Simulated assay, not measured.
Amino acid sequence: MKKLLLSIHDVGPRFESEVDLLLDRLARHVPVGRLAMLVVPDHWGGHPLRADSDFAGRLRRWSDAGVSMFAHGWFHRDMATHDGAAARFKARHMTAGEGEFLGLDKATAERRMIDARDLIQSITGRPVAGFVAPAWLYGPSALEALAESGFALAEDHMKVWQPSTGRVLARGPVLTWASRSRARIASSLLAARLLPPLLRHAAVARVAVHPGDAHVPRLLASIDRALRRLTRTHEAGRYDDLLAG
């Protein structure tokens, strides 16, 4: 059976109400225990996830219910200086200052990966499912650190892979939405109409939602439409199913 992998990004105290709304929305289409959450330990340095907090207790209960927890950077904010035109273009145009791991040196990238993993595991009592860089953007040094950090899975816009071996486990674009401008909303609505007919043929289809989506009714309606289409052809699965496959 074809697999549908569905994730909520930027999970943390900063976006607690948005995560609740998105979780309720997605649960209309797939079992909660098949979802993934990408956890940010300290969003933009102003919203720390504390192990003894109420939100940490919610993460633990979601994990107990079967939700897969990924480390999703540490700050989610890009504070690096970028060398090279390609990196500067990605930092400026592919994300709104949130490509945290695009310009980090190896030691800093590894430290943030490991610290995020250890915090999330201390809260849930379970291994994290993997690591996903904010905005799906990785610099060369971050990729080196990731390969040595012991994560079972990683993901970017176009694939899911096993960092220790480089083995690609699934290919194809992530269906996602953007809410930070009218132009981004319009382009993501168009993509959400065009991609599902193509993804229906893929062995693995990936869909990701973000807190900003929760504030735009047109995006929520588009998410519903896309999931209604994809759940006809794909069964909701877990990311670690890819390792078994």
Rank of each mutant, 00 (worst) to 15 (best):
60 R>Q: 13
140 P>G: 11
50 R>D: 04
18 E>S: 15
196 P>M: 04
235 E>A: 15
181 S>C: 08
59 L>E: 01
179 S>Y: 10
24 D>F: 05
109 A>R: 09
199 L>A: 12
227 L>Q: 02
168 V>H: 05
218 R>A: 15
62 W>G: 02
4 L>N: 09
23 L>I: 03
135 A>T: 05
142 A>M: 03
83 D>R: 12
20 D>A: 13
225 R>T: 04
192 A>D: 00
239 Y>E: 05
128 V>M: 02
2 K>S: 12
36 A>V: 12
146 L>M: 09
134 P>D: 05
94 M>W: 12
10 D>T: 12
36 A>T: 12
85 A>C: 00
172 G>W: 08
134 P>G: 12
95 T>I: 02
94 M>I: 02
1 M>G: 13
89 F>G: 01
146 L>K: 10
73 G>Y: 08
219 L>H: 01
164 S>H: 06
47 H>A: 05
218 R>T: 07
56 A>Q: 11
118 D>G: 01
58 R>N: 01
237 G>P: 03
57 G>Y: 03
34 R>L: 01
51 A>C: 09
88 R>V: 12
26 L>R: 11
50 R>G: 01
167 R>L: 10
34 R>S: 13
111 R>W: 02
142 A>S: 15
234 H>K: 11
57 G>P: 06
190 L>Y: 03
20 D>V: 13
63 S>W: 00
89 F>M: 09
108 T>L: 13
85 A>Q: 07
78 D>E: 04
136 W>V: 04
58 R>P: 03
11 V>Y: 00
46 G>S: 13
240 D>R: 14
18 E>V: 06
44 W>H: 14
120 I>L: 14
158 M>G: 14
243 L>S: 06
143 L>H: 07
101 F>H: 08
81 T>E: 15
184 R>Q: 15
82 H>W: 07
82 H>C: 14
30 V>N: 09
221 A>R: 14
78 D>T: 04
213 D>G: 10
21 L>W: 06
48 P>K: 15
